[in-house]
Amino acid sequence: MTFKVIVKGKASGKILKTDTPINFLGAVDKKTGVIHDEKHDLAGRSIKNSILVFPYGVGSSVGAYTIYSLKSNKSAPLAMICAKADLSVASGCALANIPMVIATELEKLENGKEVTLDTESDRLIVFHE
């Protein structure tokens, strides 16, 4: 895997992964972190305290505020790993101090696996058994 660090930081937690882009303004409850868009494959799941792995963010420019609100409400993911960068997710994570990286080969990141992401370490992602 290769990585590009967008927002620095360190976090350990369980991977929550989707192959569907996320519309933060339209699909995520900013108080609880629950995805309430019934058409999304994470519908009903909470992104709170996860290492969130998804292709990229879509939708309104105000989605950046949703990410900030999640952090303020203690319902944000611990870190985000995306295939492509978009300005709303990058700027939302920057303001909320949520570590964020762009990575290749996302298929190596499996749902439910425990990992540590550390943008200052040589091994950016460490998998826990």
Partner: peptide, 8 residues
Amino acid sequence: NKESAFSA
């Protein structure tokens, strides 16, 4: 660019 609320 198609800016975000925070980038603008």
